[in-house]
């Protein structure tokens, strides 16, 4: 692997994770209610446990959030 490819991979990954971490915080405090009402009164620790997963799987959650938001 050349240096430039390695740099590109690492930059992309860093951008993806950075976007994911930002999304994750928004998701566990807002979006989560849209896709799963059972999370309404969940404690902070529960939200913290979701952040790593949400930071990585954010495209899946974002899609679900958007789709759920469109429903009447």
């Amino acid at each position: 692997m050349s240096d430039s490819i390695a740099s590109a991979i690492l930059l992309t990954l860093a951008a993806y994770i950075a976007a994911g971490v930002c999304f994750a915080f928004g998701f566990v405090f807002r979006g989560i209610y849209t896709i799963d009402p059972a999370a309404l009164h969940a404690p902070l620790t529960f939200r913290a446990v979701l952040i790593p997963g949400a930071a990585v799987l954010w495209p899946v959650l974002l899609r679900r959030w958007m789709l759920a938001g469109k429903k009447p």
Binding site: V49, L50, G53, L57, R64
Partner: peptide, 16 residues
């Protein structure tokens, strides 16, 4: 292993 650990909560089981 990270993906598995991060999605181990039942929330993920239900929502994925």
């Amino acid at each position: 292993m990270f993906l598995m650990a991060a999605t181990s909560h039942d929330f993920w089981l239900k929502n994925l």
